[in-house]
């Protein structure tokens, strides 16, 4: 008997060791490229290109950052991205809440039909070209509206929000409020909104990150460089390898390799805001996934 438990324990020990090993390896696989990018952005570009940088910066320098941060396109892109993110997220959250609350009211007449109208769009859509024609015919092509309006609400997020409200605001509360003569609007403003802080945080983060990272609408609908968000500049520099130009690059003695570190640097510059807040807010993101998984 004793020996058999000992064997079992030994088996278990191997199993645990295996689990720790798998998790550790996967974590390192995720972490390594991230560390490498940051290190490379601070290193001498000749050495990065020759493969002398493996983990930590070699011959640390701020050269790439000095060049990148001097470019007006970057600051302009930053400004535009912030505008799209803030305005877009505000609009998203407002419309989502306006839609989710009535949809959470089980006794609303026509609820099923209205819900169907919304959820059908998750299964079928006009597609790229009809959207393009629409944006053009609305006359918002090449304006900031073209970036913000087409994605004003995500039906999926609305359903997550609705589920949250259904689960967290009991019907009895509404009934009691109604007996006291509280209107729907008052109930929404005084009870639902304060009690929905958690889901509002989740929605803000989801929409905010999506805006910060999106390039597609801007790419399709914007022609004017002054309106470009950061991601479009990133696309031009990282993917199309477009040149930044400028005397500080031409005069540099590592002009042949400088673009390698410039690319790493621009990644760090553009992603830094997200990753600075990420550790503090990741809990909320995960909460959102779980709310959504309950139903919907």
């Amino acid at each position: 008997m004793k020996t058999s438990t000992k064997i079992k324990n030994k088996q278990d020990r191997w199993f645990y060791l295996f689990c720790y090993a798998v998790v550790t390896i996967l974590t390192l696989l995720v972490l390594y490229p991230v560390i490498y990018i940051v290190s490379a952005s601070f290193s001498n570009s000749d050495l990065v290109a020759q493969g002398k940088v493996w983990l930590w910066p070699v011959k640390p320098t701020l050269q790439a950052y000095e060049i990148i941060l001097k470019r007006p396109q970057i600051w302009n892109g930053y400004k535009n991205t912030i505008i799209y993110t803030v305005a877009g997220t505000l609009l998203n959250v407002a419309i989502t809440l306006l839609c989710a609350y009535p949809m959470a009211r089980k006794n609303l007449r026509g609820r099923g039909a209205i819900m169907f109208i919304f959820s059908f769009t998750m299964m079928f859509s006009g597609g790229m070209i009809p959207n393009y024609i629409l944006v053009r015919d609305l006359g918002i092509m090449n304006t900031r509206w073209a970036v913000i309006l087409p994605g004003a609400m995500s039906v999926y997020n609305m359903i997550v929000c609705r589920t949250f409200i259904e689960n967290n605001i009991p019907d009895e509360m509404l009934e009691a409020a109604q007996i006291d003569g509280c209107s729907n609007t008052q109930f929404f403003l005084r009870m639902v909104l304060p009690l929905s802080k958690a889901i509002i945080a989740v929605l803000t983060l989801w929409y905010g990150v999506a805006h910060w990272n999106s390039y597609f609408n801007a790419f399709l609908y914007l022609r004017d460089q002054d309106l470009y968000p950061l991601q479009i500049f990133l696309k031009e520099i990282l993917i199309q390898s477009e040149q930044l130009g400028g005397e500080d690059i031409v005069d540099a003695d590592n002009v042949s390799t400088i673009y390698v570190t410039l690319k790493y640097c621009i990644i760090v510059v553009s992603s830094a805001p997200l990753f600075c807040v990420y550790p503090f807010v990741q809990k909320h993101f995960q909460k959102g996934v779980m709310v959504g998984s309950v139903k919907g």
Binding site: I95, G126, G127, I129, P130, N131, L134, L149, M153
Partner: peptide, 13 residues
């Protein structure tokens, strides 16, 4: 929103 940006493009098909 849903009619203009989702259903109109479907009509646009």
């Amino acid at each position: 929103y849903i009619i203009v940006f989702k259903y109109l493009p479907m009509g646009g098909l």
